[in-house]
């Protein structure tokens, strides 16, 4: 079974040379730590930064330079700043190659719910609805089950949706799966996790074809 860093590390393998990547808050943010340093990747932050770098050294923080999580950041050589409309032009116009975000639920047809729990304080969707409605390549990073042990990979989402039919790939603490026309297709198992463990933790249709390799 993977921890959050393990999920991020596996997703980092999906980040290819020349990609512009938008990372959501939570596990997706960790992906940047594991991207190979022999490839060129630019990270976009929807509040208006392309070419995000690491956190600043203490004392070098600048209140005017933050990421979408409102954290102080730095920029790398070749970075740029821009307004919010242009930022979402990059996203909506499909100029961003890969979007990685967290989710509360994903359904077998690729619907995603990650912004609202009825009865609880709603903070808002931020840029998530724009990202999922437009990106061609969306990977969801999440735990396979919620805190109550219930599956987050469902036939249909029970929570209010963020977007419909948009998720292509899911990496959880248990498995790597593709979202296909016929349901969740199991591609890889996390170390020490059996196909049966994954079946038991998946409510939606799970397609298992042949031997399922352990991820490396």
């Amino acid at each position: 079974m993977l921890d959050k860093n393990g999920i991020a590390k596996r997703i980092a393998q999906e980040v290819k040379d020349g990609y512009y990547v938008n990372l959501g808050i939570g596990i997706p943010t960790l992906v940047a730590n594991f991207v190979r340093d022999d490839i060129d990747v630019d990270f976009q932050s929807e509040n208006g930064v392309l070419g995000m770098g690491p956190f600043p050294f203490e004392g070098e923080e600048d209140a005017d330079i933050i990421n979408a999580g409102k954290q102080t950041i730095t920029t790398l050589a070749g970075a740029s700043f821009f307004d919010s409309a242009l930022s979402f032009s990059m996203i909506r116009g499909k100029h961003v190659d890969l979007t990685i975000l967290g989710a509360m639920e994903v359904s077998e047809n690729g619907d995603i719910a990650n912004w609202k729990i009825p009865g609880k304080m709603v903070k808002g969707m931020g840029g998530a609805m724009d990202l999922v409605a437009s990106a061609e390549n969306i990977i969801v990073a999440m735990m396979h089950t919620n805190k109550r042990g219930e599956s987050k990979l469902l036939k249909r989402c029970s929570l209010p949706l963020t977007g419909v039919g948009c998720v292509k790939k899911i990496v959880t603490n248990l498995a790597v799966l593709d979202v296909t026309e016929n349901g969740f297709k199991l591609l890889e198992r996390a170390p020490g996790v059996s196909v049966d463990d994954i079946k038991n933790a998946t409510e939606g249709s799970l397609i298992v074809e042949g031997e399922i390799p352990e991820m490396n």
Binding site: E58, E61, G69, Q71, I73
Partner: peptide, 10 residues
């Protein structure tokens, strides 16, 4: 110019 989430590295 208040900082909402001060994040730094060592």
């Amino acid at each position: 110019k208040r900082i909402e989430q001060l994040t730094v590295r060592q």
